[in-house]
């Protein structure tokens, strides 16, 4: 176990570093991108690269700290469960929001190359 601890720590720090980088980039993207449907991609970077990855990293670091005693398993376990919830729920949130925004016309997909969904709606194939 003692041999494994430094490895876990280093991996954890690398993951936290990746998370920090992704957060900054996603923040810049959030402000640079022109409309809602493009910003969704920046939000994905925030959720996965920026939050899921560092939470896993923190769990690994916590596992390697023996001064915390038994409580470190609590931190690591809760961190893993949080990360799994994030992994399942974040995309669903984005999807629901995108769908509602698209069909309620609250946000418009303006600079667009192609919109096959709109064509199908106009053809009457989809009623929403």
């Amino acid at each position: 176990m003692n041999l494994l601890n430094p490895v876990l720590t280093i991996i954890g720090y690398v993951l936290v570093g990746i998370g920090a980088f992704c957060q900054v980039v996603a923040g810049i993207g959030m402000n640079r991108f022109p409309n809602f449907f493009v910003r969704l991609h920046a939000a994905t970077i925030c959720a996965i690269g920026g939050s899921f990855v560092p939470i896993i990293g923190c769990s690994l670091i916590a596992l390697s700290i023996e001064e915390f005693g038994v409580i470190r398993f609590f931190l690591a376990g809760a961190g893993f469960v949080t990360a799994v919830f994030l992994l399942i729920l974040a995309p669903v949130g984005s999807h629901l929001l995108a769908k509602a925004a698209y069909f309620s016309k609250a946000a418009v997909l303006y600079p667009k190359a192609v919109d096959l969904l709109e064509e199908d709606v106009e053809r009457g194939e989809i009623r929403e």
Partner: peptide, 19 residues
Amino acid sequence: MSIIGKMSTRVIMPMIIIV
């Protein structure tokens, strides 16, 4: 709402309750 929301809620509900 959409089927993705429904299926993911089905998976996640027991976990939320147990947490």
